[in-house]
Design a binder for these strands. Structure first.
Lengths: 365, 365
DNA sequence: CGCGATGGTGTTTACGTAAACATCAATGCT
DNA sequence: AGCATTGATGTTTACGTAAACACCATCGCG
């Protein structure tokens, strides 16, 4: 046995350029139908029948073939099958920063929905949502064995910059692609309206915003909606604070926010940043919600268990994932052209304990 | 345009049994090399050369072929290529409850490492880590187009219950598979030892344990290590509390823990449960770490920003993912048999602010 | 100036599977 | 009994690609 504790970094070759074909090394391919057929004393077509529709062959023949399969350890060659059928039963998925928050929940839902339909999911995770990264991912994936493509967070990539292979069905979780590719997206505007409205109704004079990064479409949508809603309500619009979705950025910005006694209500573009803000407020000895009310976005599993439990806008990531798959498979299977299709998934404000009316003697002391 | 707000649940057919072959619907396959060849006035072999090694064909011929490719919107058929090469440049990945915790970080690392090597990742997410679920996933994936398989959290599946296709290289993130499949796993025992040791050194008489579910191998390893370490230190071993990894379970159990004044130190099997425990302690007006010290496991991104920042055992999920891929590709590419290989990835206790010496007048009042 | 070497291209073939068609035996019916 | 019908199995072919080989110019060299 070969036990070892791993210490240093891993050496990694960054070779294998996108276009490079597989190395010519012969495959691990095991026995083929012909081998099974020879052993069982039948034709390879009969073997084929056994593996696709066993009822088409007589029980004793079937048993003989199955025995031969087991003996040789036969399993059908997917490549050949795919070539024959022209389908891989696989869909490609481009995600961004998988490990973060809701992204992974959408992925989970996509994988699950795909599985229900008999499809597998091929995943590419891009680091940044920059057009080049997304484009590279598309290039890579579309040279892979996929029947359709789901892009989560196309972000700054525009329909024009995406060099998609012709005839490849695509679905996007980004409303800016309407007219080019079918899209399923969260109703960011409504969610923001609910969050900001909730805080204003509680009596706050205005609402500060801890925004997401500029290269994120949802972040911009939330920012715009927050701005517009305040304007519509005739409130002062404070300068937004720019985070990067991470709890760390929420904490850093929160330390500045905490110093401003005018701040009584903060709408955070996601729950992680709200958690970072919590920490900054705690460190500044400010109480939530007595001194500052906080609202998040996403409703991550931990939101309910932060202290105090976080009021937040719940997104239905699971539904989004399901709808994406449904929409994609409609195109894959039925050759439908749904380019102008768009679904807006509603959100719901979950009121917990992080919001309250401002102190009467506001601003804070 | 077709805008609609989605309300009701999605109808889902649970058809498409594992063995069912793809529907016979003809593929979306576009033009083939032959079409391009005809248009460009060359043989299909020349087209093939252009798409694999452009230098092998004269510049003007190449341009003519490339023009024809563009005009027809040609892209090479992956199935045919895979059949020819015997390789898909794809690895299968079975994960469990992707959206939860560190799992997604390992997945992220696997995807990234695979990409660096020119491989794509096919993902299956199983709901429960039960043998049947994992087995079904294996069956499903191994009928897909993959060159190798990575199983994250094989849990209660044993080498015997896994009906793996012969000749399929497999790597597991589970140390119980040593001798059957190569494994890369976190050093659970050492991590636990560090956590419990830290608390004892601070002066706590003993350490309580908020454990993970019984069907989880890592949970059991942490439980055992905690037990053994207390025994070795000559301390009383309190009954462990069984959670299910979720913050909710940590909260529920935490409410009971909070009522026991004997409890001054708790080692949680993961950070989410620690967060739930935090909430329960806060609600009970107990302070961390003054009244109760808490240690988590995983070091999720939020751990640092909980209040107070959580002392926890950091796992290097990223390294695990990389090593899994390296190990798998060694088998795939070099046909090596590494069945008895095992790598133990070290962990590190990150001391933050949730641990301190017990009050002198312990037990709590 | 003839001959081998070289580079560019076409032709043949194989990868493993499954549909389409062909064959053959057993069965049912008059 | 004779013939159509059915069911089980074998044979041929095509899916799209790329390696292996064959061919033919052109070039360099003695």
């Amino acid at each position: 046995m070969n036990i070892g504790r791993y210490a240093a970094g891993v050496p990694l070759d960054d070779g294998a350029s996108t276009a490079a074909p597989p190395s010519p090394g012969k495959s691990r391919s095991g026995p083929s139908m012909a081998d099974v057929a020879a052993l069982a004393g039948v034709s390879s077509q009969t073997v084929s029948r056994v593996s696709t529709d066993p009822d088409k062959v007589r029980p004793d023949t079937r048993r003989r073939v199955q025995a031969a399969m087991t003996e040789l350890g036969y399993s059908p060659n997917t490549a050949a099958r795919a070539l024959r059928y022209g389908s891989f039963e696989t869909i490609g998925l481009i995600a961004h920063r998988l490990a973060r928050t809701g992204e992974s929940r959408t992925v989970e839902a996509v994988v699950e929905a795909a599985r229900r339909h008999g499809y597998t999911v091929s995943l590419i995770d891009v680091r940044s949502p920059s057009p080049t990264d997304v484009d590279e991912a598309v290039a890579r994936l579309s040279h892979q064995a996929i029947d359709g493509l789901i892009i989560i967070r196309a972000e700054t990539a525009t329909p024009a910059t995406l060099a998609l292979p012709p005839r490849l069905p695509v679905v996007v979780s980004d409303s800016r692609f309407v007219g080019h590719h079918p899209a399923v997206a969260t109703d960011q505007t409504d969610g923001t309206r609910q969050a900001v409205g909730h805080l204003l109704e509680l009596g706050h004079r205005t609402v500060h915003h801890l925004a997401g990064p500029e290269d994120s479409a949802p972040a911009e949508q939330r920012l715009t909606a927050w701005h517009d809603h305040l304007v519509a309500a005739g409130r002062e619009v404070p300068a937004p604070w720019r985070g990067d979705w991470s709890a760390g950025s929420g904490y850093e910005l929160g330390r500045h926010l905490a110093e401003d006694p005018e701040v009584t209500a903060v709408f955070c573009a996601n729950d992680e940043m709200a958690a970072g803000l919590y920490r900054a407020l705690h460190e500044a000895d400010l109480r939530v919600p007595e001194d500052v009310s906080v609202v998040g976005f996403d409703d991550i599993p931990l939101a309910e268990h932060l202290w105090p439990p976080l009021t937040t806008v719940a997104q239905d990531f699971h539904l989004i994932g399901q709808l994406l798959v449904d929409l994609l498979l409609e195109q894959v299977r039925d050759r439908k052209d749904l380019a102008d299709h768009r679904t807006l998934v509603p959100v719901e404000l979950v009121v917990r304990s992080s919001t309250a009316a401002p102190r009467l003697s506001s601003p804070r002391t």
